[in-house]
Design a protein around this nucleic acid. Structure first.
Length: 262
DNA sequence: ATGGTTGAACCTCAA
């Protein structure tokens, strides 16, 4: 069967619940990795999601951050938080095993810190977070599983992934140090699902609300589905769901969805 | 364009 796996930064689950449920009904992804929920478990809209047949694993936080995994397949081995810093209280990483008939895969939803500006403490936190992710991916790859780490990486990998590579060089989400930190992860042997299937195509996943970036075509591709070799070998499709960014009161991100033959 | 918009919560911060 083909298992459809998507990632989406919703920028508030409570404001975006109608966009999400309409999309779940129409596209029926099997697994959805969500970021920027801005919600705790007390206010998370479990009922609207569960009545569509999804199990929910949630790592919530008030006001900021918050990640979740929605899955039509049963979830187990749920782990909250990225290893490597017990003092990190931000809800930016959740991982689980999804089990189907005759197969299992590990999935993770990640929300890499934005980093604010390259001269800020938050940028250093972003770089440390990416290094923690590198170390964790290195350990996960040893299991040789079908693995999908999807989320808002807040890094555009290459010049083709931003609207103005020269003007944006050195700015947040397209800084040489961030791009090197992301390459240190992909060089371990995880593969960008979109870029595997579309080596030359410029499609963005995020557009700034400010300055009407969407209508101006000023976007970046910063949301990624990174695949282990075992997952990449099964990759059938990968698209960015532009239509959700065209709705009234949209998230500033569009989902990215891939299909794996499992 | 050193501006601009959005969301959650607070009277501003994060993105």
């Amino acid at each position: 069967m083909t298992v459809k796996i998507a990632t989406w930064n919703v920028n508030s689950i409570r404001l975006r619940i109608a966009h999400l449920t309409d999309w779940l009904r129409n596209s029926a992804p099997d697994i959805v990795l969500l970021q920027e929920l801005k919600a705790t478990s007390e206010v998370f809209p479990y009922m609207e999601i569960e009545e569509l047949g999804y199990n929910v694993a949630l790592f919530g936080q008030k006001s900021y951050n918050g990640v979740a995994i929605l899955s039509k397949l049963p979830l187990s081995d749920i782990k909250n938080g990225l290893p490597g810093d017990d003092g990190d209280a931000e809800a930016r990483y959740i991982e689980a095993i999804a089990s189907g008939k005759g197969f299992a895969l590990r999935v993770a939803s990640i929300y890499v810190p934005n980093g604010q500006s390259p001269d800020s403490d938050k940028f250093q936190y972003k770089l440390r977070f990416l290094e923690r992710l590198r170390a964790h991916v290195e350990s996960l790859l040893r299991f040789e599983e079908v693995l999908v780490i999807g989320g808002d990486y807040n890094v555009a990998p290459d010049p083709i992934d931003v609207y103005d590579p020269q003007g944006l060089d050195g700015t947040t989400c397209f800084h040489p140090l961030e791009r090197a930190a992301l390459r240190a992860i992909t060089h371990l042997g995880v593969y960008d699902a979109f870029r595997i299937l579309h080596p030359e195509k410029q499609v963005f996943s995020w557009w700034d609300y400010r300055g009407n970036g969407f209508d101006a075509g000023k976007g970046m591709r910063i949301d990624h589905l990174l695949l282990s070799p075992q997952a990449a070998d099964r990759l059938e499709s990968c698209e960015i769901v532009h239509s959700l960014r065209e709705l009234e009161k949209p998230s500033d991100h569009a989902p990215v969805m891939c299909g794996l033959a499992l």
